[in-house]
């Protein structure tokens, strides 16, 4: 097993330092901005389960994110269900949608570009449906009643929101680490590395892939619910739009796909970059996406393992350990 390197520890430490530093930042803008980045980071972690560990690159993770958000919003707005129940339902709905898409796509052996396209099409179908039916609020979306309080999962205080999000991010990362070092994770990675060999070794690859989609769906649905509880408003473009699908895959690829820290590092890094650009060039909507795209192209060429892989090259412990063993 590969050990952590000093470079990776430093990178993780920098991220943690930044996240703590936000508490002491002079301007509240930092916290608001980081809150948004953290929600996207959770979608990125969702993508990382399938795309990073399983090598199943989805281009339509908005399908999971949006389903979580809509499930919770519909229950709360139309049926007056409690926000906490909606929270759980959103996660479950995301997982169910993930399992459904996975079950269909993998039943028919889709992989590579075909899987990417089919996930994209699912997100698009859901977006059009959500914008067309009265049930989902149609084009005007769904709005939650403003009612701050723990029981309603709404917090007026930004610091509380931020802290809660940090806890959620930490939990998702711990779950990711548990998955990575579990039998399931090993099987998922085996599927990515060589599906035929995995099948020969007794792995039910179909089941593993569908389960991965379900877990990814749960994380994605979770992110959607977080967005809903934060903004109290969703519509089809915001939660089912292609921007989410793009952000879901870009963070992990730049940070390091198939690593525990990659999605967080990549997303934070990108958002900081985008925010910086916004200050240099105000009134340029979408400029952050141009930057993301440029970084993505460079990362694909020069950082095949992402930031985490790059950091791993600095001060690796493994060499020393081998020498001791010998």
């Amino acid at each position: 097993m590969k050990s952590q390197s000093i470079g990776q520890l430093a990178l993780a430490a920098a991220a943690v330092a930044y996240l703590i530093g936000v508490y002491f930042a002079s301007s509240p803008v930092w916290m608001g901005f980081t809150i948004n980045a953290l929600i996207i980071a959770v979608v990125a972690m969702s993508w990382n389960i399938t795309g990073g560990f399983g090598g199943l690159s989805s281009f339509g993770h908005a399908a999971l994110y949006g389903t979580g958000a809509y499930a919770s919003a519909i229950l709360q707005v139309k049926y007056g269900v409690n926000a906490w129940v909606g929270f759980a339902a959103g996660i479950l709905a995301g997982a169910a949608m993930g399992a459904f898409i996975g079950a269909l796509a993998f039943r028919y052996g889709l992989r590579g570009s075909y899987f990417a396209l089919v996930t994209l099409a699912f997100a698009e179908v859901l977006r059009i449906c959500a914008s067309s039916f009265e049930f989902t609020g149609g084009g005007s979306g769904l709005q939650l009643k403003l009612a701050p309080g723990l029981a309603n999962l709404q917090f007026a205080d930004r610091t509380v929101v931020y802290t809660a999000l940090l806890v959620v991010v930490a939990v998702v990362m711990i779950l990711t680490a548990l998955i990575k070092y579990s039998r399931f994770g090993a099987y998922l990675i085996a599927v990515r590395e060589n599906e035929d060999a995995a099948r020969a070794l007794g792995i039910d690859t179909y089941r593993i892939k569908v389960q991965a989609m379900a877990i990814s769906g749960a994380f994605g649905g979770l992110a959607g619910v977080l967005y809903l509880q934060l903004w109290l408003f969703i519509d089809s473009t915001v939660v089912y739009g292609s921007a989410i699908s793009v952000e879901a895959l870009i963070g992990p690829i730049i940070g390091g796909a198939g690593t525990v820290w990659g999605p967080l590092l990549g997303t934070l890094g990108l958002h900081l970059l985008g925010e910086g650009a916004k200050h240099l060039l105000p009134n340029a909507p979408g400029l952050n996406f141009v930057l993301y795209a440029v970084v993505l192209i460079c990362a694909l060429r020069f950082l095949p393992q992402g930031l985490v892989g790059l950091a791993g090259k600095f001060g690796a412990f493994t060499k020393k350990k081998e020498a001791e063993d010998a």
Binding site: S57, V294, L296, L300
Partner: peptide
């Protein structure tokens, strides 16, 4: 193959958002 898909995606992001700008 996956990189090509991602690079063409990136190209489309660049063109679309510059057009928007």
């Amino acid at each position: 193959e996956q990189n090509v898909l991602l690079i063409t995606l990136a190209i489309s992001m660049i063109i679309d958002n510059l057009a928007l700008y």
